[in-house]
């Protein structure tokens, strides 16, 4: 049974939990290409929400709308109860400090060393000035992703998986309240992949971070997911926890788990 939009929207808004992100009827196209046709979802405080979906269905576009990198055509997208597209420049900035975004491409600053990459948001955004404190925080985060010895390397000297982990450290260093992970474990070996998944769980436990995790890695999904959504043709077509979806009635959904 494919749940229809109405019941999906209703289902997620029911319950006592507080929604930190809430999206209704979100639409986005590029020119004549319709990418998101009707997105409805809520992200509740402290939960890990895993989003599955075939390549090119618009998962990255959806989370880019959440941080105001892209603007939707219609529909509403609220974070902490405020409509993102109506925020002033200052408000958008303070929202972005609370929302961490891991890019699918890691997006490390090429001209800076790993240390400078992690330092960038600390000095520019949090305006930290204490050198020792900055260094301490950088080392703590790099240790968390297992890359302390790469601290002085340049991004061009890192492997794809290492870049991903540095990108993750650079985002987590801001201790965001909401984390948007765009394929955090893609391109990593199973062991590192597992470590990253554990790290995501640890963020949730330690800081009560609410996360959206886009992934194709079912091992990561199994470890991290409290709830899962499946995107297809620009809308969410199924919702449930790992077991529900794995054993669900829909062939397409089940095929993700094989």
């Amino acid at each position: 049974m494919i749940q229809n939009r109405e019941s999906l929207a209703n289902k997620v808004s029911v319950g006592s939990k507080e929604a930190v992100v809430s999206i209704r009827n979100l639409k986005k196209s590029f020119g004549s290409k319709h990418v998101l046709s009707d997105i409805n979802m809520d992200l509740f405080k402290g939960e890990n929400l895993v989003v599955l979906g075939k390549s090119g269905t618009g998962k990255s576009v959806a989370i880019k709308c959440m941080v105001g990198l892209l603007t939707q055509e219609s529909g509403s997208l609220k974070i902490f109860g405020k409509e993102v597209k109506d925020l002033s420049e200052e408000d958008l900035k303070s929202l972005r400090i609370k929302v961490g975004f891991l890019f699918q491409s890691a997006a490390l600053y090429d001209s800076m060393s790993v240390e400078q990459n992690l330092e960038f948001p600390l000095t520019r955004v949090l305006k930290m000035t204490d050198k020792n404190e900055i260094r301490h925080r950088i080392e703590e985060l790099l240790e968390g992703v297992g890359l302390l010895d790469a601290i002085d390397k340049m991004p061009s000297d890192l492997s794809g998986g290492m870049r991903k982990r540095v990108g993750l450290a650079r985002t987590l260093i801001m201790k965001p309240e909401i984390m948007l992970y765009d394929e955090p474990t893609t391109g990593l070996d199973p062991i590192t992949s597992r470590e990253i998944s554990e790290l995501i769980l640890e963020m949730q436990r330690k800081y009560h971070t609410s996360s959206v995790i886009i992934t194709h890695d079912m091992a990561c999904a199994r470890i991290t997911a409290d709830r899962m959504l499946v995107m297809s043709n620009g809308e969410f077509m199924a919702e449930g926890n790992y077991e529900q979806l794995e054993n669900g009635p829909n062939e397409l959904v089940r095929s993700f788990f094989k």
Partner: peptide, 10 residues
């Protein structure tokens, strides 16, 4: 990278 700077609040 420019998007990343923007998103970090810088």
């Amino acid at each position: 990278q420019i998007d990343a700077m923007e998103v970090s609040g810088a």
